[in-house]
Structures are given as C-alpha cells and as structure tokens.
Amino acid sequence: MELQDLLLFIDQYGYFALFFSLWLGIIGMPLPDEMIVMSGGFLSSLDTMSVWKSFLITYLGVVSGLSLGYVLGRQFGQRVLDKLMKKKKAKYLLQSKDLLDKYGRFALVFSYFIPIVRHILPYLVGMNHMSFKTYAIFSYTTGFVWTLIYFILGHLFGSQIEYISLLATKYGIYLGIVIVIISLLYYFYIRKLKKIVKIGNIPISKIFEVWWG
C-alpha cells in the first residue's frame, strides 16, 4: 500500500480506517506507523476530519495494537516468538531482548521510537509477566507523547510525510533519547521550582506573573 492509497482509505472510511490501520500494525501493516499517524494529522489539517477526534482515535489505535501484543505474549508465550522467528524478524527480536535486558521497563519508552521493535517488545514483557499496570504506565504514557509528536508533524508538514517517515525509520531512536532527556530535565526543573516556592512561601502564580510580565 502506498501513501496515496492510505490517504484515500482513511478519507473514505474515516476514523474506523485510522484506528484499524494502526491496530493492524501489531501483525505487520505494510506501512510504518509513523506514516499512518502523520496521515491522520494531515487529513485533520484539511478539515476532512476533526483534529481532536482524529488524535484520540489515532492514540487508541496505537496503544490498543501494542496492548494486543502484550496480551498475546502473556497468553501464548513461546509460540508467539516462534511465529516471529518464522517471519524473519530474528534480528529485531534480539534487539528487543537486548533493550529489555539493559533498560528493563524503561525499554518500553525507547522501543516506541524503533520501528518493528516497538511491536515485538510488548510480546516479550507479556511473556515475562510484567504486570499490566506497569506496562500501561510506561507504554500508554510514551504512546501519548509519540502519537502527539507525529500527529503534529503530519498536521503541519503533510506534504513531507514520506520524507519524515523515512527519517523516523532511520533515526527514530535518537529522537526518543532527546525526548527522554528533555522530559527528565523538565521533571527535575519543576520539582526544583516547587521546592523553591515551598521554602520561600511564594505563591507560584506570582512567579508566573514575573516570568510573563
């Protein structure tokens, strides 16, 4: 399926097509998830679809597809891995295992930015009996950020979807690292700011008044 076919498919069948395309990613949709998410953002910029509904459906499609992987891994274990090996995904399976061994639950964060690995890792954490609560906290939170990034890119730069998708496929992990670093810096900055406010007994509204004039 080409990009034009995807856009026509989503334009014709609306939100259902957007959700279904992403949900099928877990079994190998022949288009990158990044391209599908950006297509939703692009069509919403043309007023073909509601921005908020498109984003919500896109996000639900992403996390539901990956959650299905978690459930399959938890229920069927080794049989799922055997299927992956037969589909010539051994390289990505090893990459996913290395990521999980190195970073544990935080591998769910990085994996979103690595094509194919993002679909395999839920199988592995399901097999390892990670609690669904832990899985959801890490996967759904990162999934929201990841979806938001590519949805906005599609909304703003719809004519460059294929080029951006190509870059994301090659360098997505670096984008993930940058986002994690920025998020950590922001988190510790907010914590420090709250501590200063608490010690000085200064209403935080006053600080924002100073910042914004």
Results as ranks from 00 to 15, higher is better:
1 M>C: 03
7 L>H: 01
8 L>Q: 08
10 I>G: 04
11 D>I: 07
14 G>Q: 07
14 G>V: 06
15 Y>E: 14
16 F>Q: 01
18 L>H: 04
28 G>N: 03
29 M>Q: 10
31 L>G: 03
32 P>I: 12
33 D>M: 13
33 D>L: 13
34 E>K: 13
35 M>V: 15
35 M>F: 08
36 I>R: 06
37 V>N: 07
38 M>S: 11
41 G>E: 04
41 G>A: 13
42 F>E: 02
43 L>K: 05
44 S>C: 02
44 S>Q: 07
46 L>Y: 10
50 S>G: 05
52 W>C: 00
52 W>A: 12
54 S>T: 06
58 T>S: 14
61 G>L: 05
62 V>N: 05
66 L>H: 11
66 L>E: 15
66 L>K: 07
67 S>W: 10
68 L>G: 10
69 G>E: 11
70 Y>S: 09
72 L>N: 03
73 G>V: 10
74 R>W: 02
75 Q>G: 02
75 Q>T: 04
75 Q>R: 13
76 F>I: 14
77 G>C: 02
79 R>H: 06
79 R>E: 06
80 V>A: 11
81 L>T: 10
81 L>C: 00
82 D>A: 03
84 L>C: 12
84 L>T: 14
87 K>R: 15
88 K>S: 13
96 S>W: 01
98 D>T: 14
99 L>M: 05
102 K>C: 00
102 K>H: 12
103 Y>M: 10
106 F>W: 11
107 A>D: 06
107 A>H: 04
109 V>L: 07
109 V>N: 02
110 F>E: 12
111 S>D: 14
112 Y>Q: 07
116 I>Y: 08
116 I>D: 14
118 R>S: 03
120 I>D: 07
120 I>V: 10
120 I>N: 01
120 I>E: 05
123 Y>C: 11
124 L>K: 08
125 V>M: 00
127 M>K: 09
127 M>I: 12
127 M>H: 03
129 H>V: 00
129 H>G: 01
130 M>K: 06
131 S>F: 13
132 F>Y: 12
132 F>H: 05
134 T>P: 00
134 T>K: 14
135 Y>Q: 03
135 Y>M: 03
140 Y>W: 15
141 T>L: 13
141 T>E: 04
142 T>A: 02
142 T>L: 00
143 G>H: 07
143 G>Q: 03
144 F>I: 04
145 V>D: 00
147 T>S: 14
148 L>I: 08
150 Y>Q: 15
154 G>C: 11
157 F>M: 05
158 G>A: 02
159 S>I: 01
159 S>V: 08
159 S>M: 05
163 Y>G: 04
164 I>L: 12
164 I>F: 11
167 L>H: 01
167 L>G: 02
168 A>T: 04
168 A>W: 02
169 T>W: 02
169 T>Q: 12
169 T>M: 03
170 K>V: 07
172 G>C: 11
175 L>I: 09
175 L>M: 07
176 G>R: 11
178 V>M: 02
181 I>L: 15
181 I>P: 09
181 I>Y: 12
182 I>N: 00
184 L>D: 04
185 L>K: 10
187 Y>H: 12
188 F>V: 07
189 Y>V: 15
189 Y>E: 08
190 I>T: 08
191 R>T: 01
192 K>V: 08
196 I>M: 11
197 V>K: 09
199 I>D: 08
205 S>E: 14
207 I>N: 02
207 I>V: 14
